[in-house]
Design a protein around this nucleic acid. Sequence first.
DNA 1: AAATGAATGTTGCACTTGCAACATTTTGTA
DNA 2: TACAAAATGTTGCAAGTGCAACATTCATTT
Lengths: 221, 221
Amino acid sequence: MTHLFDSINTRNQEKLLKMLETYSLHFSKNTSIFSTFSSENVIGYIAHGFLQVIKMDKNGTKTIIEEIYENDILNTVFFSIDKNDYDVIAKEETELLFIDYESILTLKDTNKDFYIQFIKNLLKITNEKTKEKNERIEILTQKTIRNRLLQYFTIMSNKHSSKFIYLPFNFIDLADYLAVDRCAMSRELKYLKEEGFIEIKGKRITLLYDKYSSSDKLINL
Amino acid sequence: MTHLFDSINTRNQEKLLKMLETYSLHFSKNTSIFSTFSSENVIGYIAHGFLQVIKMDKNGTKTIIEEIYENDILNTVFFSIDKNDYDVIAKEETELLFIDYESILTLKDTNKDFYIQFIKNLLKITNEKTKEKNERIEILTQKTIRNRLLQYFTIMSNKHSSKFIYLPFNFIDLADYLAVDRCAMSRELKYLKEEGFIEIKGKRITLLYDKYSSSDKLINL
DNA sequence: AAATGAATGTTGCACTTGCAACATTTTGTA
DNA sequence: TACAAAATGTTGCAAGTGCAACATTCATTT
């Protein structure tokens, strides 16, 4: 994964941050950080901690839009027009470095290698995020819980070239990510276990089917 | 919407393209352009025409991942690991300018304003795409067809600050976009009409409910 | 104007899923 | 260790949806 300051040494990092409009803030566990930036477009570099971007439905259902870990960035430019529905929560003690987006794009003195490197890093990170969004869309376009699970397993398995998957979240959040009812998902996982397709031990899931042959039969009964 | 060559004059555009590894190709209507780039990461600038990025399920179900119109870009960096499942189709006669992605990021002689402008444009476009993906994810996390439709209507309505929505695609593709069965969607649209929430005339949909008050009742029965 | 194909509309039915309500297990903490 | 709280597992049932099969309307071409 690309890092915002990849290939930029500490000295140039400091120079760069002086050129841009920045400020650091600290957030306690389980606090909303949304009010601190809702009016402006910023990049929030997570120096330390862990964030969740969530969306509240009119009926109170929570949806995880994105999870952002240390060294990654929160880009508020991504939020759609109706910002009111969003919230960003620090799930741990979190240290955020905010960088004003406009100040990045309107910088005049741009003939510095480290500035170009910075923009390139930003571009790479954004690309990686889009890739992740595409993956999630692929999953969410599946029409059954079984197919969503299998699609998710396939993507995770491919990513690490292994038939062992270590869930990055608990089953509540997995159900959120797949946008299905947790209980119904639990039931489906039971069926998959019973039918001998997977094995679950805590957060480790083992795929017992052959990716490229029997998965055809697997998906759709 | 941001354009790849915004704020770059024709002369500099030519200079820029000479610095990068590029090639132009023409595609006939309904042909796959996938084979031309599947092995490399490129940006495909759509000089003229219209593309669809689709994904074929194991069971043959087509999903539209992205639609790309004139002046927008096709970024193959976005594709997930399993590229085999993807296809890109020219839906009209299409003229594509391919730019090798690596050549953009590894360019040495970067102290040119137009180069920085180019990267900034690319960044902006990528941001816009991520925003669109987020919107689609918001829609796809809705659990009923009704709520997906209403979420879609709300987003479209907000975008143009109007209660009139002009569908950018036909109902077949709308069902694809919402990832629901077309017939079931048709049924749900009928109910929404019968209950007096919307009006449909061709591709124009009129929202008859008040966005901020009755939509609570509307969503969830 | 007729004909062909594409898009849209309709509906019964079986299957999947969300929901609710609860049991059990695990985790965190006083 | 004991307790509370969170996470996970289970299941009946009603509601929603995909699927299939078909009817109707619209669009394009000869």
